[in-house]
Design a protein around this nucleic acid. Structure first.
Length: 493
RNA sequence: CGGAGUGUAGCUCAGCCUGGUAGAGUGCUAGCUUCGGGAGCUAGAGGCCCAGGGUUCGAAUCCCUGCACUCCGACCA
């Protein structure tokens, strides 16, 4: 090591791939990470996004893994229509009140020339349709026909679909008017079965969040005013982003008999009596990708957890001399095939860019492991690789056999380290307090994160209402870990 | 829906105050030298200056009216 002069420092001034940095301007940093990783862009329609191949690959990995976990719960996939007759949603008072403001309405079915080169809607519909903001009502209608006997229960159905909620203030991935999700809808004989199911599904999500996303969270129940319209219980995972705001990562609702009543889902029980069924619904959306970014990305861009990465190893051919190119590319391809045989996804950068551009491209995309292969590696039989989350100091040089033998372990370790790092950060962000005075001081000091407090202290409290309003914070959840006795309060996305 | 800001090259923006017909950086294309944590030179392609109206001999620039986007609130399962 040597001591750098001031001049040398300026030349080598630390430069982040993303500007501004997280500390400088978090919302702008977030958007730039997405742009730099080439994951998505805003669409011509306000509030809608185009998910680009690299971002969509993450969604496909979320789908693939979560779908397998959902099916393990004996749930079957189906598909229900995008358009819902207005009369369906009007059936349930509380539900409609929750969604009415956000509904897009289809009122016409035909376009005609206006004689001035434009088109105008003609053919008004006798009954307007809404574009589904969620599918409880239309699935309820089907279930009322499908469910006749206790023998038809439990009925467990999931759909992967797009939904639309007209948003006042869209943010890419986090809050878009159209988004992709899965929504599960289950029907049971009893309240207890439904309650167990709602709890079971939040547990499935917890496993998914921790094991695949490497994102920890506070798992618990929503306070009554934060519940899904029509639900008797809503369970959630509240994850904490690097700016200290909470993000509801998914939800699982015990809907009681609310929707069974409005959709008339009844079954003939063993005792010959017609009974109203009990339902649940549970969902996880593309919003989760926003959380993935805000939890893991750094000032150099995205950091992909290996299990959700579009490709886990980015192979960068280092070519100094054109004559070496065929040999190097052939070697890269050989390594790629060996990785694929082990179930490790890999991609060779064939862009022909300069080394540093390929390198930074992979960094910004958050490719878990970068593998540099040049004439040197081939000559020495060694491979040079770097874990994205450790930075350049984590660069390692090992033999080909050692690399192939250890890569799965390296990826697994990275996945584990990312979760652990996120967990440490989350724990440091939420402090336990005893009084509302402390809560006021905490938010007044603009501290990063949230607080945990005795739930009783915020119930029917005018001071808490005042704090909520003044600092725009909300109760996020009553963690299971505290048996519902305590509540987490924070700003939220 | 309120407050603020911004619409000019693929992207980031300057020019506008003080009207005279289009600029920079970056990216892109080609060539050469380079290349292992952000390289340099040369040449080139690329713009209905958000839209509509007005003022003017003349508007990216001044004045109206829209529209869109961004940020901050409100709202939000």
């Amino acid at each position: 090591m040597f001591i750098m002069t001031e001049a040398a420092k300026n030349v080598k001034a630390p430069r982040t791939a993303i500007t501004p940095t997280r500390a400088e301007n978090f919302p702008e940093w977030y958007q730039n990470v997405i742009k730099a990783a080439d994951m998505a862009e805003n669409a011509p329609v306000r509030g809608c996004m185009i998910i680009k191949p690299y971002g969509y690959a993450v969604w496909e990995n979320i789908q693939g893994n979560l779908d397998r976990m959902i099916k393990a719960e004996e749930v079957q996939n189906a598909y229900f229509p995008l358009l819902i007759p207005l009369s369906f949603i009007a059936k349930e008072a509380e539900h409609i009140e929750g969604f009415a403001k956000e509904c897009a309405v289809v009122t016409h079915h035909r376009l005609e020339s206006d004689g001035k080169g434009g088109l105008v809607p003609a053919g008004p519909l006798t009954e307007p349709m809404i574009i589904r903001p969620t599918s409880e009502t239309i699935i309820g209608e089907a279930f009322s026909r499908w469910v006749q006997s206790y023998r038809d229960l439990p009925l467990k159905t999931n759909q992967w679909a797009n939904v639309m909620r007209w948003e006042m203030r869209p943010r890419i991935f986090l809050r878009t008017s159209e988004f992709l999700w899965q929504e599960g809808h289950n029907v049971f004989e009893t309240h207890d079965d439904a309650e167990k199911d709602a709890l079971r599904m939040i547990e499935v999500y917890r496993e998914f969040y921790e094991n695949y996303m490497a994102v920890p969270g506070f798992i618990g129940a929503k306070t009554p005013d934060e519940r899904f319209p029509g639900a008797i219980e809503t369970y959630t995972i509240e994850a904490f982003m690097q700016d200290g705001k909470a993000l509801q990562g998914c939800t699982s609702h015990n809907l009681g008999q609310t929707f069974a009543k409005s959709s008339d889902i009844k079954f003939l029980d063993r005792d010959g009596v017609q009974k109203l069924a009990w339902t649940t619904s549970w969902g996880l959306s593309t919003r989760t990708i926003g959380g993935l970014i805000m939890v893991h990305a750094d000032d150099d861009g995205m950091v992909m957890p290996p299990k959700l990465a579009p490709y886990q190893v980015g192979i960068l051919p280092i070519i100094h001399d054109e004559a070496d190119k065929p040999k190097i590319m052939e070697f890269c391809d050989k390594i790629r095939k060996e990785l694929l045989a082990k179930g490790v996804s890999a991609r060779i950068d064939k862009s022909g860019q300069r080394t540093s551009d390929m390198m930074w491209g992979a960094i910004k995309k958050g490719v878990p492991v970068r593998l540099e292969i040049g004439a040197r590696e081939i000559a020495e039989g060694q491979l040079t690789y770097t874990r994205r989350d450790l930075g350049k100091d984590g660069k390692k040089k090992v033999s080909v056999d050692e690399f192939l033998g250890s890569i799965e372990g390296v990826l697994a370790q990275m996945q584990k380290d990312m979760l652990e790092r996120a967990r440490q950060r989350m724990q440091g962000m939420v402090i336990e307090i005893k009084t509302l005075k402390e809560m006021r001081d905490f938010f007044a000091a603009e501290k990063i994160g949230g607080v945990k407090i005795d739930y009783k202290l915020i119930q029917d409290s005018d001071e808490f209402e005042a704090i909520k309003k003044e600092f725009s914070v909300t109760p996020r959840c009553l963690p299971f870990a505290d048996n519902g006795q305590k509540v987490i309060v924070a700003k939220a996305y």
